[in-house]
């Protein structure tokens, strides 16, 4: 599992039905936009958010939720690791072949 860091965190998962990347909001539901994610700044609130996410996974709504480190910018949280910002933003490449 990821190292425990002091960075602010958001909770993410993939939606079971379609695999879409989703982010846990302040209302305790899931959004497909990272901008909607609730940022957790301390360990206990992050753990509480993960608890909500795991309960959602147990209801067959999402798969394998986990917390990711973010930096909070004007537009909202931005994941720190490359893997996570690619999950947030989509593939970094033109997803359609060039000469279609």
């Amino acid at each position: 599992m990821a190292r425990v860091t002091d960075a602010p965190k958001v909770v993410t998962a993939n939606r079971l039905q379609d695999g879409a990347v989703v982010w846990l909001t302040a209302a305790g539901d899931w959004s497909i936009r990272v901008a909607d994610a609730q940022v957790q700044t301390d360990a206990s609130s992050a753990e509480a958010a993960l608890g909500i996410a795991r309960a959602s996974a147990a209801r067959q709504e999402v798969v394998e939720p986990y917390a990711v480190d973010v930096v909070v910018e004007a537009t909202g949280p931005r994941p720190l690791k490359t893997r996570e910002w690619i999950r947030a933003a989509g593939p970094s490449i033109d997803a359609i072949p060039t000469a279609a």
Partner: peptide, 27 residues
Amino acid sequence: RLAGELTEDEFKPLRLMNGLYLQLHAY
């Protein structure tokens, strides 16, 4: 799986045997 009769842990090998992965953005 959708009904919760299979856990993700149980479903995963079954879906993989049928070529289905869960990747970063989708299946």
